[in-house]
Design a protein around this nucleic acid. Structure first.
Lengths: 219, 219, 219, 219
DNA sequence: TATGAATGAGTCTTCATTCAT
DNA sequence: CATGAATGAAGACTCATTCAT
């Protein structure tokens, strides 16, 4: 797949005016280390039960240092969610607009599986699912900057597919979520049940796309 | 739909030896009230942040009373999850085995949507998704008693459909999760994003089934 | 002096709806013990440096217990100030309205010296002086319920004295603070400098009154 | 009034060996800026709650810089108190020794009101009152270098007044505090209650002096 | 059984102080 | 001399759990 990866893996991009420490190279690295450690801890224990003490230890800094980079626990958590996925959405939106539809949708899905599902970014999404209800602002951000943008891109693709006759199920254009559903299912499954029944999400997704692109009955 | 509801509404069935209080009628009612209140609180704030104080207040009992019925917070939480969904799985397994496949799968889905998705039981599933990683025993229980049983029932149905030629996509038999995926998507969506973009899960599910049961090209 | 002491020494009167623990006898005693301990700690270290841990230890309760009776450190502090002096103001206002002026003003001053200056209540005033600027609501309360009421009572007395010709300095009616000034000076002095130069506040006050009531030049 | 101001504005005079930084012109200015900022912060929040961070920001230096000029927070605080009032005591002691008593005491009081009460130096005294109990060395210094010297000067004046017959109340010589009491009252009042009931301290002081110098009954 | 006051371990957060640059 | 990032000790506050009544 020719995913135009954004420069850098993204975890530590900071466009906003640096809020305290971190103008320096080392500052940025520290901020990144903290976010990184925080992701691990939040993913493992949930927002409420994660201890900043552990985040600090894991990041190799003192407890107080965290507060040089983030206002408080919640700000750290939100920053985590805000910075990890957006770059990949941009990548997805920038995917090449030519070629057969099936290939493009496949590329879309594959990008998602490879670059999100199989990385620690999956944990970010799991965190949004788990903690979203307690962080409405975060849920909204995630919706607007991730979900909506991804679904809109997908919808555009589907529309073309429907027009070209490559996709028979026109309802898909109304429910682009249906394309993503198995991926979300995979996300959840791998997080919860993989040790009981491993699930080959990529294979499942391929089967799913086979259905979506199934040729209809000849007239 | 002809959902064979199990006797009772299910929330507080307890087959096991009563754990302390509740031999009496009132005891059972109290236990039920506590579980009920706990579901509300856990759903609203998550396991770690829910306060037993609030559970008690909501249930109309004293804080200490909770400990007469449940060993501790975790036991209350696990009991909640263990008792709420299983009866409905039994109902699903018991669904009539005749009629056209499409109708049967539809009934399956509709039961799920109506009896789970649109009730407070959806919160139980959301809780499992959110808290499962911290409660492996619970995740396992949920897998074995809910997920696996539901998927097995579904798989049996699909197999028949494939054999009868009503379902063309044989891969569905390997990935019965594909049938459930939109429902899970709906569960998540309604919990997180409904205020931004309401999703008609039932309609989406119908569209999804249309795809699953799409007649193939004539040979 | 015939100070009509209000029933009880006042420290633990609570008229307001008891806010949590304390409906019981023991509850009230505990609340009192905490307030008592808090006065000691706040007086010794100031609001910011006093540790609730020490307050709890001194009161013989656990740290958490304080929070059953008071919302937080500040509420404890404010309650302390609000409850300790007001009863004595009432006593002062209720002082008998007959007799020679000099005797009445003397009684007023003596009451203040004996019942406030020489008791731990003096610390309450010192706390108001020291912390008032950080607790405007408290300063206002103290002004309205203590200072203003005391000065108004005093002013009434002075007015009578002026009318009867027992007090020649009419300006006193405009500046009743002048009567209290030496007492405040004594309050401060005993708190800060007594170990270097003990000050007999009562004697000083008598000298002061001698000035106030000094007979004028014969015409 | 002809206050013989000591050379310089006084705030940052240091006779002692410079503690580290400041041999240079700029060093002295910085030290002064820090002391100045510290007075503002300590006055506003009290010793314990004042943040050196804020002091540094207000002084326009980095936090670490404070430690080049002062050993620690407490040393900064003590220095503040030690340097701000003493020059004015010297001025008071040096006040001209001729003229009518009343005028001289009036000058004394006026100097105090104008040069202390109505300046930021009043905050220094308020700080001593509020924090003295926690800084015994400071309280002692303040007693010896400010209070005692001022009272001694006052006492000398009073003694002369008594001898000359200008002051009838001989007790004043034993309690020179009585002269200062209204000023202290004014200091406290303006700090705490001025917004509820403004107090004209100068007028009050004049009334007070009228009493002190009231001519007695003719023999 | 039921209560709810009491406990105290556990965490976030602040801020004086240090120190590498 | 000056900086300001980093540290970590200290303290307010919460809340699951216990237990006397």
């Amino acid at each position: 797949m020719t995913t135009p990866k954004p420069a850098g893996t993204g975890r530590t991009r900071r466009q906003r005016a640096p809020d305290g420490a971190e103008r320096t190279e080392k500052g940025a690295a520290r901020r990144a280390a903290i976010l990184d450690a925080a992701l691990d801890e939040f993913a493992a224990r949930g927002f409420a039960s994660a201890r900043l003490d552990d985040v600090a230890r894991r990041a190799g800094v003192a407890k107080g240092t965290i507060y040089l980079y983030f206002k408080d626990k919640q700000a750290l958590f939100e920053e985590l969610v805000r910075t990890n996925l957006v770059p990949h959405i941009a990548a997805i939106e920038a995917m090449p607009a030519e070629g057969p539809l099936r290939a493009r949708v496949e590329a879309f899905a594959e990008h998602f599986v490879r670059e999100v599902l199989m990385t620690r970014r999956a944990d970010v999404i799991r965190l949004v699912l788990a903690e979203g209800p307690r962080f409405p602002a975060l849920a909204e951000f995630h919706y607007r900057e991730v979900v909506q943008r991804a679904l809109t891109a997908l919808q555009r693709l589907i529309q073309i597919g429907v027009e070209r006759g490559e996709i028979r199920h026109e309802a898909l254009a109304r429910f682009p979520q249906l394309v993503m559903a198995p991926i979300m299912m995979g996300l959840i499954w791998t997080g919860l049940f993989n040790r009981f029944a491993p699930l080959d999400v990529a294979a499942m997704m391929r089967a799913h796309l086979d259905m979506l692109f199934a040729p209809g009955r000849e007239p």
